[in-house]
Nucleic acid binder design. Structure first.
Lengths: 229, 229
DNA sequence: CGTGCGCTTGACTTTTTTCAATAAAGGTGG
DNA sequence: CCACCTTTATTGAAAAAAGTCAAGCGCACG
């Protein structure tokens, strides 16, 4: 069956027995969200978790005044909302589809039964949660220990990773969302981008295309050795 | 044996079979750290994790310029450094004893063998990691969405939780450490404490004793409805 | 009894946000 | 394909928040 094939492709479920896939297939629900649609809201009852199949999802916190902080953007293969499953409490943040998104939903109760019956499922989950904790540590470090130019530089370098030859990177999100990911506001981001351009460190190609002219400069900014004029 | 008794008392290992305790007892190492002593440094090889028995430990990130951000302060019963165990990478932060601290050390390899042989151990660990993720989300929210007075107010309210009658709270850490926990510097913290006192919201009793005179005021500050003059 | 460290306060600087106005992009329907 | 409208992005000027530097106080500890 096709469903099992899709489940087997999810990293979280890698290396499991066939019988696990069968059981997972029995409890899974297929869901589709439109762009901009809310997947779950902070303080919603955590009735289960999702695994993104296609599309992208932002998980974020909202302040009473309306400022948004994106915790992470999830793409295909990544689970979201698992935290609520294991603490048995409400979701600690909200989730919204950035584009049309298809996801598998696993209900809390059924999944917990499954994992209790055969806890080997838990091992992959541990790795996923640890990975996420690591990412959050990095975010905390960025927010607290770096100022905005440093965070932006680190992000640009991250985008440029793995493409040694090409110096052109593509922002996969609009700039206002990038601001929210970096813990600032669009105006500030815009100004810093302009400064980076003035200093010859980057060059804006299209609205979402940026050329990295001076990687070393970015690294110095990211580590705090260098400051913008 | 005494050792097994101590292991059984650790929340992380709650509800396990007797044989688990025996096995854990076989791989555990007892360690003592003096006040100020480093338990592990960021970028150290993650060879295992600790469970605090007595004393307190701060886990923190350090910026190149020397500013410190405390991620969390751990007390008796809490595990530290588990993230490195499951990702198999280096520690994402440093850990230091705030006072004389006794801790059990579990070596990565042995613990992983144990958990693989009987993954039911993993379930408690999942709950712990989820709990931690939740705390980190809250910290990110505080750092990004609240300004310092709001963070401080939230912290004071947290200290005052559960003691409805008494309005006096005790800081369990020196103020410079509190500043680092709140993502600011001692000078800023000092000024805001002074403002809170001027507005009649708190009253400083001793160097580590603070009386909460106006809980509602603190709540308004924590939620951003109210600002300091 | 002095030294040192934690804490506080003042004056000043830097960084970021706020408010407001304008410009550019993207999508929709004629 | 173009006009129109909404959303997204940029820029300036001013305000606010937090950080830096420097000085001084007080208490604990040797």
């Amino acid at each position: 069956m096709k469903l099992i094939h899709q489940i087997a492709r999810i990293p979280l479920f890698q290396g499991l027995d066939r019988k696990h896939y069968d059981r997972l297939a029995m409890i899974v629900t297929d869901r589709v969200f439109q762009k901009g649609e809310t997947i779950f809201g902070e303080e919603d009852e955590g009735t289960g978790f999702y695994v993104v199949l296609s599309g992208r999802v932002k998980v974020f916190k909202l302040s009473p005044e309306g400022k948004e902080q994106i915790l992470h953007i999830f793409g295909p293969g990544e689970p979201i909302g698992e935290v609520a499953v294991f603490t048995g409490r409400r979701f600690p943040a909200s989730a919204e589809a950035l584009e049309e998104t298809r996801a598998f939903f696993f209900a809390r109760k059924e999944f917990m039964d499954l994992i209790r019956r055969d806890p080997s499922l838990a091992l992959n989950m541990l790795a996923v949660l640890s990975q996420r904790l690591r990412r959050f540590s990095a975010l905390i470090e960025n927010l607290s220990l770096k100022e905005v130019p440093g965070r932006l530089a680190a992000y640009l370098l991250y985008l440029g990773e793995g493409k040694e030859g090409k110096s052109e990177v593509t922002l996969e999100i609009p700039k206002n969302q990038l601001a929210s990911l970096l813990g600032t506001i669009p105006e500030t981001l815009s100004r810093i981008l302009a400064k980076l351009t003035r200093e010859g460190i980057i060059k804006s190609i299209g609205p979402r295309q940026i050329q990295l002219l001076d990687r070393k400069g970015l690294e110095e900014l990211a580590s705090g050795e260098r400051k913008l004029a």
